[in-house]
């Protein structure tokens, strides 16, 4: 069973629908036991970082996420919350990706970065059967800087982490659930881990 973590700011419906379209059973939960017993965990996200962190702390989910040993996929805000610190609301984040800072895009071009963009580099299991020229959908005003865990790079204003991986923790800044067939392939790759 795939469990999608329920926290107030997340756009839960989209991820659930995407998994259903892939004929994958899933449930939405904030129950610690349910999450820890899941085959895989998805940590979705649309929202604002500091209020999301407050909610996670209030529900003790911040501690729980560290204990997850099964594959977990953070999406968009999920990726950012897995970093160490975010400039959005100047909040400490989960630190699953230690020392990684989430920064605000400088206003050199339109912000948020909204729309379809390709990769400059990709590596790892999440990107099997994906080409760098493939476009995926982004909508974000903050980005994780390039770091040791970066597994995909996108260039907008400056190169940033399109995807990251550390052990069982995977994350994408783009929305695979909203990235048409390319996104479905990336979700399939995660489900196949």
């Amino acid at each position: 069973m795939i469990v999608i973590i329920d926290y107030k700011a997340g756009n839960i419906g989209s991820v659930k629908n995407a998994l259903y379209r892939l004929n994958c059973e899933c449930m939405i939960s904030d129950n610690p036991n349910t999450i820890l017993q899941a085959d895989k965990v998805i940590f979705p996200g649309v929202g604002e970082a500091s209020s999301a962190m407050q909610y996670l702390r209030a529900k003790n989910l911040d501690q729980l996420l560290f204990q997850i040993t099964q594959p977990m996929l953070g999406i968009c805000l999920g990726l950012q919350l897995m970093c160490a610190f975010s400039e959005e609301g100047n909040t400490d984040c989960l630190g699953i990706f230690p020392k990684v800072m989430v920064k605000q895009f400088p206003p050199k071009d339109k912000v948020p970065h909204m729309g379809w963009n390709n990769f400059t580099t990709i590596k790892g299991e999440l990107f099997q059967n994906i080409q760098p020229m493939d476009d995926v959908y982004y909508v974000h005003g903050y980005y994780a800087e390039l770091n040791d865990y970066t597994s995909g790079v996108c260039d907008y204003i400056e190169p940033f982490s399109a995807a990251m991986q550390k052990d069982n923790f995977y994350a994408t800044q783009f929305h695979p659930e909203k990235s048409a067939n390319i996104g479905e392939q990336i979700l399939k790759n995660f489900l196949a881990l």
């Binding site: 700011a9 756009n11 649309v46 929202g47 604002e48 209020s51 805000l77 948020p112 909204m114 909508v139 974000h140 005003g141």
Partner: peptide, 8 residues
Amino acid sequence: ANAFGSQC
């Protein structure tokens, strides 16, 4: 914007 983020 405060509740859900500007991106939506």
